[in-house]
Amino acid sequence: MTKTKHAGLLLGFTLLFSLSANALASPSPPTTGTYINATTYMSGAQLDAWYSMTRRLKSNFDNICADSFCGGYFSNIEALRYNCSVDQTTGHIGMCAWTFAASNEEVDPISGSIVVEKGSWRCRTPLDQNIGIAKLITALAGSTPLHAPLPGSRLTILDGLVNDCFF
């Protein structure tokens, strides 16, 4: 095989591999949508109220965890982040979800190594459509946002955890 043919084959394989890798790559998220992160949408006092509410949510979860969700296989469930998507043109919520993580560790009696099983959950908040972020923050402004009725509903964030995630 001549040097020219060899170089041509090499170039062809490189191009084919490059195209195949691009086809297998994850698609890029759309950049023309109107939904943004709730914390990007808010500012000032509303943003402060949001962060205060999410701290109380975590505290509420920590208070009930041992007696409910954290009594089983994963006994160290940690609340990571509560987040919502907001339509930047209307202020309406697209979705809210709370993420959690946990682990269970076992010692391998033969090798002495630690075997870890990881768990993670994305728990949706059962919100009605066309709820504005300001209404959600107002509804959850008390000391127990985990148990507070969501706007336009009798359901709570806790109901979402029970129905969507842990039981």
Score class of each variant (00 low, 15 high):
M1L: 13
I77C: 15
F17N: 06
I77M: 15
D159P: 07
T14E: 11
F166T: 01
C123V: 15
G142Y: 15
N22D: 04
N104W: 12
L16S: 09
T14M: 08
L9G: 12
L136R: 11
T144C: 07
K118N: 12
T40Y: 07
W121F: 11
S103T: 15
T31K: 15
I133A: 01
S143H: 14
S20D: 05
C165M: 10
V115Q: 03
F61N: 07
L24Y: 14
C65E: 13
Y73M: 08
S153K: 01
K135M: 08
I93L: 03
M1S: 13
G132A: 04
T99A: 01
C96H: 09
P109L: 14
L16M: 12
A79W: 08
M1R: 15
E78T: 04
S52A: 14
C96Y: 08
P149R: 06
R124S: 10
F166I: 05
M42H: 05
A21L: 05
N63Y: 02
Y82G: 03
T2I: 04
T39N: 13
G112P: 09
L19A: 14
R56T: 06
A23F: 03
P151V: 07
R81L: 03
S52K: 02
L19E: 05
T14P: 00
Y41I: 01
I36R: 06
G72I: 00
I93Y: 05
R154V: 00
G72V: 02
G44F: 10
G91K: 02
S143V: 09
F61I: 11
W50M: 00
A38K: 03
S18P: 02
V86T: 06
R124P: 00
P109F: 13
C70T: 06
C70V: 10
N37A: 14
Q129W: 03
G132F: 08
A97G: 13
T138R: 08
H147I: 01
N130K: 07
T2S: 02
P151E: 04
